[in-house]
């Protein structure tokens, strides 16, 4: 347990674009649930906070089979709000520096270590792979200058770290919260989010080589 930051894992959503009627956290990837793969990567995180909503009970059960000292935070308005609201709820009473982590994101284990050991605020991005991505515009040193729906140098994937004094509420996406604090240090990582069935198949193949 060496990471002194809080990590907020947002797992409240209904995963509508995946269309499997199952919350993404419980999606089986090569035989293991997505959230169990993430929990394994967070073993050095002391203050692990998991935001739940849709199928909360099933997620909690799965988490408790692995680890008991987690704080669960309920986003009861998970149907009306997006990851911004979940992150805010998970972060508002957390430690001074908070890492946001989408529940549908898988990050290469080496990059996870780097992220958990990096000091201060930052935003992580990846090479562009998804359809309908949100992009990061960066300067020559890789700092994030803006988010864009149209174009950019990299794909915004998160995770990202914010100081509590910079935290504000958004019912929209989590990047809308970070947008208010730009420019911010950027870090390129290998991360893949699972939004569609194609993403799911692709990620299942990719992580076989991790």
């Amino acid at each position: 347990m060496s990471c002194s930051k809080s990590v907020v894992l947002s797992c409240a959503g209904i995963g509508s674009r995946l269309g499997l009627g199952l919350t993404k956290a419980l999606l089986k990837i090569n035989g293991r649930s997505l959230i169990s793969l993430q929990l394994e990567q967070f073993s050095e995180v002391e203050d692990l906070r998991i935001v739940v909503g849709f199928q909360a009970k099933s997620i909690i059960e799965e988490v408790l089979s692995i680890r008991k000292d987690v704080t669960f935070i309920f986003n009861h308005l998970y149907f009306e709000t997006k990851t911004g609201a979940s992150f805010y709820l998970g972060a508002k009473d957390a430690r001074d520096e908070i890492i946001e982590w989408d529940g549908d994101l898988l990050v290469h284990p080496d990059d996870v270590k780097t992220i958990l050991n990096t000091e201060g605020e930052f935003i992580c991005y990846s090479d562009i792979t998804s359809d309908g991505a949100v992009f990061c515009k960066t300067d020559e040193n890789g700092n994030v200058l803006a988010f864009s729906r149209e174009n950019g140098d990299y794909e915004w994937t998160g995770p990202a770290c914010i100081k509590k004094e910079h935290l504000t509420y958004s019912s929209n996406n989590v990047y809308n919260i970070f947008e208010r604090v730009l420019p911010m240090k950027g870090m390129k990582i290998r991360a893949y989010d699972i939004d569609t069935y194609n993403d799911y198949k692709r990620v299942s193949e990719i992580i076989k080589n991790w």
Partner: peptide, 22 residues
Amino acid sequence: LFSITDYMVFNETALCRVLNQL
């Protein structure tokens, strides 16, 4: 309680961590 609670914890360590954060 699942439909009204803000936080849910399952051991003393997590409970006291939340209490101290509040």
